[in-house]
Design a protein around this nucleic acid. Structure first.
Length: 380
DNA sequence: TGCTATGATTCACT
DNA sequence: AGTGAATCATAGCA
């Protein structure tokens, strides 16, 4: 087809007789000159074009060229007008919309349909109420870059389209270019630019995905709990080994003491129960240590389970809420330390755990007021 | 660098 | 909704 990169066409044919072929030269000569025009220097070619433009055969030849070209273009048209692959663009638009990068009104073709037809579950973190200011700030930066680039592309597309249209209109005076062809060329340009836009959208999507995985995926941010948190949790776990299912209140208390969240406490207990059950041998030493620790410092830990349920109970009293178990725990711990063997209570609880907590689970509420069931030495 | 520990997530179940 | 079990993914260590 036409080459828009060609140098600007010469001004309308001058009236004076130009150099080159005389107006009377033969048609075949004229055709030969046209064919040879590309082999000449720029200046020569320009002069030759002027001359050809004034040739008496020009109108006739021009109409023949138009006819031939129309036929050729028709055969090309069939190939070009195959359905454009809009699926990916739609997906990208949809995703950018879901991530809050582009607004429903400000998108490429196909996006409106995508936005209308597809819900965006959990897409934008703002919708989930997640407070990730870092994420939001960076997302905002990405959005800004995206829109400014998009605007640049759109402007460049407009400018280039105008330029090419003008060029073709001008050239249509000396070579066969129909308005339809210009229209088609504009379509081709838009297609090219939209493929660039698609790349921009793709990159933006990738950037958002990377950002999400870095800042929102909690797995990537996993950090071990502080020693304090681990100790608090372990103390509770081993002191409630017969029923390591802290109540909501106890979880809150543990979370507060350990400086972690309630759901982290829940996770920790979930993991702990499973891992403890799977490999009790490995945890024996730990159990012994914490049982001893708990026994020595019994009011502190035991208070957790019962405090929340019985707020009126003075847990700070010298003997604690469950004096009997406290002294028993201390005794057990001392015995354990002395014999370097797991405390009998622990052993008993190990077997309890082996049988499975779930099977004989009781509601946490029922534990309140039954201190013997929440202490390691209770089974003794 | 490979291994283990561990916090988080997912899914099925009750 | 809470849990067990499996799994993922990272931290920390030798």
């Amino acid at each position: 087809m036409e080459d828009p990169q060609r140098p600007a066409p010469p001004p309308p044919a001058p009236r004076r007789p130009p150099p080159g072929p005389s107006p009377d030269s033969h048609t075949s000569d004229v055709l030969q000159q046209i064919m040879a025009i590309t082999d000449q220097s720029l200046d020569e070619a320009q002069a030759r074009k002027h001359a050809l433009n004034c040739h008496r055969m020009k109108p006739a030849l021009f109409s023949v060229f138009c006819e031939i070209k129309e036929k050729t273009v028709l055969s090309i048209r069939g190939i070009q007008e195959e359905g454009p692959p809009d699926d990916q663009l739609m997906r990208l638009d949809n995703m950018l919309l879901a991530e809050g990068v582009c607004r429903p009104g400000k998108q490429g073709r196909g996006a409106a349909a995508a936005a209308a037809s597809t819900a965006t579950p959990g897409g934008c973190p703002n919708d989930n109420g997640l407070e990730h200011s870092d994420y939001r700030a960076k997302l905002s930066q990405i959005r800004q870059i995206y829109h400014s680039e998009l605007e640049k592309y759109e402007q460049a597309c407009r400018e280039f389209t105008t330029h090419v249209t003008n060029l073709l209109r001008e050239q249509s005076r000396i070579r066969p270019i129909s308005p339809k062809e210009i229209e088609r060329m504009v379509g081709v340009i838009h297609g090219k630019f939209s493929s660039i836009q698609m790349q921009l959208k793709q990159s933006t999507c990738e950037a958002v995905m990377t950002l999400r995985s870095r800042l929102l995926d909690a797995r990537r941010k996993r950090q071990n709990f502080s020693k304090q948190a681990t100790e608090v949790l372990n103390e509770y776990f081993y002191s409630h080994l017969s029923n390591p299912y802290p109540s909501e209140e106890a979880k809150e208390e543990l979370a507060r003491k350990g400086g972690i969240t309630v759901s982290q406490v829940s996770n920790w207990f979930g993991n702990k129960r499973i891992r403890y059950k799977k490999n009790m041998g490995k945890f024996q030493e730990e159990a012994t240590i914490y049982t001893a620790k708990t026994a020595v410092d019994s009011p502190k830990v035991r208070g957790l389970g019962s405090q929340a349920s019985c707020p009126s109970m003075p847990s700070s009293s010298a003997s604690g809420p469950f004096p009997l178990t406290s002294s028993g725990g201390a005794l057990t711990a001392l015995q354990t330390l002395a014999s370097l063997r797991p405390a009998p209570g622990v052993g008993g609880l190990l077997s309890q755990a082996r049988g499975g907590w779930r099977g004989k689970r009781r509601s946490t509420a029922s534990l309140v007021g039954d201190p013997s069931s929440v202490t390691p030495d209770a089974s003794n």
